[in-house]
Design a binder for these strands. Structure first.
Lengths: 210, 210
DNA sequence: TGTCGGCCTATACCTTGGTATAGGGTTCCC
DNA sequence: GGGAACCCTATACCAAGGTATAGGCCGACA
């Protein structure tokens, strides 16, 4: 709602200086913050900002191919959305890139508008991914402050067991369960059981098996 | 768990009889139930089984292109996963297909194993999609038996409000809320509040705003 | 050694949830 | 008119949840 067009970053990696120039000025004219590099190494040496961003990548790079670089980023859990460009690519390349999650795969020469559309979609995707990740992170942080017993009780509570049943399962008294449960609610900053259940699902604490 | 390789269906659409033959025998040898067609129309005239299945589609078809057919299926809410084949396709085609959700996009000639891998992945995808859809459908069916008031109460309950607060919001007495709530639990076959919350989320009944 | 945090328990008390029973009302349809 | 479904309310009672107060046990750590 109240999210303006906070400065978004576009990273360009292409060994052709003319293309870097052209893309940089194109993106800058649209209000993006642009950084361009001629190799993947250079890009990796640069610190990624904590802002919505995307990577515009030529598939043919010095030393390492764009596809390899893509999977390298994935292995390092770097989730920046990627838009590929190619002058001489083939279909298997594009399919592999798209399967690996690329946002788009443009063949040179492309229309400026196509590139801008791809970047806009990538940025918007990254923005919402970042929001999701941020809230999940804060959730995990809160969860990590629970003692082992509290985590255990939380799992049982959110799977729908009564305090009495949990007490039986853990061979504890019901009052102890109530205490742990209360602590879990406070630490997780849950305002209701419904809240806690939702949090547990986001954390992957669902033991819904027969 | 107890899901054996229930008969899965592979549909082949290609105007080249030789290819239809070759693929049919390939898939049949792997235990799939195969139906082949030379046009999209023929395929559409065939009833789709309520079983995991996928569609192996040549991108160049008589009358209608494979890509058009793909979006036509999407418009009709037919979600069968698609594997494209092409002899003379280009990159933009493959990218468009993949963006629209195709499982794979193979260039002829392809290795049998590549096609089998794609089909296996498509079938497994469709199987889990069908399971999800089935449970969502049964959920919606149960939800539709709730009276308007019961639905309203369910939404409030699963958003974490106390009976008392719901009563205030709806200008009703607390006991009435309890009644509706109890009915909702019974009709939804929820065994606990946690259950109901989960169901509400699956149904998209989340009013989590500040 | 002391102390701090996690853990377990108990009593007491209050709030909330859940259901049965028993009414009252409406609308729609046979 | 009578039934059926929905809707609302009330009393009464019991089960479950939640918290405060208080105490004991243990291991880690300064």
């Amino acid at each position: 709602m109240t999210a303006p067009m906070d400065s978004a970053h576009v990273f360009v990696v292409d060994d052709d200086g003319a293309i870097r120039e052209a893309l940089s000025s194109l993106f800058r004219s649209m209000g993006f913050d642009v950084r361009s590099f001629s190799t993947a190494m250079e890009f990796m040496a640069h610190d990624l900002p904590d802002l919505p961003s995307c990577l515009v990548l030529d598939i043919r790079l010095p030393l390492i191919s764009g596809l390899e670089f893509q999977s390298q980023l994935a292995r390092q859990n770097i989730h920046i959305p990627i838009i590929f460009m190619t002058g001489h690519g083939d279909i298997p390349m594009s399919v592999r890139a798209m399967k690996a999650g690329a946002v788009d795969f443009l063949t040179k020469p492309f229309r400026d508008q196509d590139m801008l559309d791809a970047v806009a979609s990538a940025i918007s995707f990254d923005r919402s991914r970042r929001l999701d990740e941020k809230s999940l992170l804060s959730l995990r942080e809160r969860y990590s402050t629970l003692s082992p017993r509290e985590q255990e009780v939380m799992a049982h509570v959110t799977s729908g067991l009564l305090n009495k049943q949990i007490a039986g399962k853990m061979s504890l008294s019901e009052i102890t369960i109530k205490i742990h449960r209360g602590h879990a609610m406070k630490k997780m900053q849950a305002r209701s059981l419904a809240d806690l259940v939702t949090m547990a699902r986001s954390l992957g604490l669902s033991h819904n098996g027969p």
